[in-house]
Design a protein around this nucleic acid. Sequence first.
RNA 1: GCCGGGAUGGCGGAACUGGUAGACGCGCCGGACUCAAAAUCCGGUGGUGGUGACACCGUGUGGGUUCGAUUCCCUCUCCCGGCACCA
Length: 892
Amino acid sequence: MPIYMPMDPHYNPAAIEAAVQARWQRDAAFRVTEDPARQKFYCLSMFPYPSGKLHMGHVRNYTIGDVITRYQRMHGRNVLQPMGWDAFGLPAENAAMANAVPPAKWTWDNIAYMRRQLQSLGFALDWEREIATCDPRYYRWNQWLFLRLLEGGIVYKKTGVVNWDPVDKTVLANEQVIDGRGWRTGAVVEKREIPMYYMRITAYAEELLAALDTLPGWPERVKVMQANWIGRSEGVEIGFPHAHDDGVLKVFTTRADTLYGANYVAVAAEHPLAAQAAAANPELAAFVERCKQGSVMEADIATQEKEGKDTGLQVIHPLTGGKLPVWVANYVLMGYGEGAVMAVPAHDERDFEFARKYGLPIRQVITNAYEERRRSGDPGFTGTDYAMFNFDETSWKSWYAEKEGKVSTFCINSGALDGLTHSHAVDKVTELLEQKGLGRKRVRFRLRDWGISRQRYWGCPIPIIHCAKCGDVPVPDSDLPVVLPDHLVPDGSGNPLARHAEFTACKCPQCGAPARRETDTMDTFVDSSWYFLRYPCPDQAQKMVDGRTDYWLPVDQYIGGIEHAILHLLYSRFWTKAMRDLGLIATTEPFSNLLTQGMVLNEIFFRRGNDGRITYFNPADVDVETDNRGQRTSLRLRADGQPVEFDGIGTMSKSKNNGVDPQALVDRYGADTARLFMMFAAPPEQTLEWSDAGVEGAFRFLKRLWKLAADHVARGPASALDPAALTPAQRDLRRKIHQTIAKVDDDLGRRYTFNTAIAAVMELTNALTRADDTTPAGRALMAEGLEVSVRLLAPIVPHITDAIWRELGQSLPLIDAPWPQADAAALARESVEVVVQVNGKLRGRVVVAVDASEAEVRAAALDHADVRRFTDGREIRKLVVVPGRLINIVVS
RNA sequence: GCCGGGAUGGCGGAACUGGUAGACGCGCCGGACUCAAAAUCCGGUGGUGGUGACACCGUGUGGGUUCGAUUCCCUCUCCCGGCACCA
């Protein structure tokens, strides 16, 4: 039965959306169960952090997922689309400090609000599978798996470097370090080493890299980023014996062929040799201390001025026997490799810069054919070659670091290596080193093990008990979960858990003596590394996962922001493989197809307070004045009229306070307009600068669609369509209908270009409106056109299309209506337009029969009056014919 | 700094495999309806020149390949994402 009777001529989104959503609710339309008889489709969007309100990035992400979900469902698949909450994390602690509210209450309140927002947008989510990572029923399995991985040696303990705020005496996240200082105290941050738990992701490095080739459904750019991140490199580990004792300094290099050019070695400030030398050298000790200041972020370290200091210690070159100085350098990282590098200034750009700065010798050991020809006085040598390929100690040229690329390079000044090219020289030098026991080939990865300990309250407790006698003792499975007390309020000075005796006080599970519970919690990436395995079985109280996980996995389509291209996706792939190796799941790669959504950006405004602290203001609260040339003249906060500063544009986020709440849009125009506008604005993978210009246009289109349907319905039922009895104009219109089906099916199902799908349906409805044909055949065409348009748009704007669908007299719910099929007969055409170019410039068009011969098409093109103006009197040198599309006449 | 991506009218974007640059929409201009406004409908809209037919120019910069380049190659500029404790 229609909801509205008769059909209201005015589009009323509030009433339509409420009614349609109520019916979905009543029918439990989004509930899914395992059904071996149908093809399953697991459509997953990355779950949100419950920051308070949805922002436009969420609307974009979840609309994309919902469009794909509904499209697949209309194609007959059994589709699972779940939702949950990435509910642990730093913002809850910040909010707690600001408002004196426990993170738990803040988080659960946010979840309740955002759940309502998601429901109001009409997403086809199975809410019975909702999970929140801060729920002990979820995170107990983090703890359980942590213990299994600990048993298997995948989890282990070692020290790691963190940002330390010496005033608040607390560990800071990278985000909380601004220009090397603590965000709250302004104190210069120090690096500090503390014990932490690590996951041995490097044990899976080879597989994580190789398996990228098994993922054709992933964007190339993501696979390239992951491959570079894992960073497999084949090289040689070389030992440099200490000159002062019988120790050996190990370095790893991919350029062992340049070993004869090594004239110093550089070690990290944290390296034992640095500490040893600093003990007797106060100046060096001061430098080492200075290196330990500042943040641990790679971007900071990589951009800082390269500095170093001679330790006075020396090592012995393994082949020449010469002595090389040992320097401490701030660009060498202790956490990477051995914390030491051999420096070859002539053939490494960073070493070159360092050597120039400190006056260290630069010894060329690689040359190329051009340079050698010059040296040998070859008369064929030219000045240009000289300029490009002559080695010059005063400035860097890219060929110095060439291996086997554009310029053919080989060794010189290198004893037995002379004349050898890169790979041969590496083989030879390895052989020589092996004879002395000072070298061997090794494969090394840039990827580092995953430190999961966080000195924070609002996270999943690490299930370990520290006993004075027994050491670090795992919490027995029977005592899981270790429940996080949910009433504490952090104050910025360390982890409140550590001061909460009720939590820390416990008995050693092994000896029963009083012991202390571990107070570090897990990295929130742990929570998000397996949530997609839990949606299939959220109610499973006995096990982490069950057979339902194997039914639904792998995820057929995963959708999320490009900012997760590396970390989250790599950790999830690792976690999946670790669970596979424990026999818990059958899946080896969790996500078959990946759609990386472009970020939704907005302007960022801030003010720096007297204490140096930065406050961000929402763009909606900032008044912008511009002059008549569009240049900005003033930026002021509306609340106090005082100026604010502009910090560029960036991702909508809680921390930058530049999110746009979709609620105003939904309240004013309805969910369908919000969804349509978001999908129409740009293709999903593209970055999108926020602007609401165009919302009105999306709303107008829905109003026109509604009116088109209402006018049609008001005229009563249309008669059946007889395709054989159509006029040429009606045949053209019918072709347009079926072309649109083919186009939209491709755009929604293969290309994921929702903007062009919408444009195609707009073109169709424009054509239907313009036809204005109330003959019986015309009305039958209108009926077909409307039924097609409504089904093609159903995944994008599910409410209005559902309502129109019913008004058109359909009884099967639109959500389960079959997707329309393009009729080949309707697509057939008799003539085709061919473009005629002269010398590549468009000069005319000719219409020819579809089956016209090439000779006929040529003749028509050459005879075209506008074409002849450019060809008459000239010699036709070439004729390029692209059948059915174009002819290019090349004249002299 | 390193890795990945992007740049097309006043604006968002289209052109899918090298073949009609600017689909669709916004905005703007003109018109209809109206006492008026809103809403709606119709027409126009890359730039320059021309009454016009039309011509020339035009896809961030500079070069290259090609009958033909937004698309492929090289160079540079700017912007965005990531860089291991924001998520």
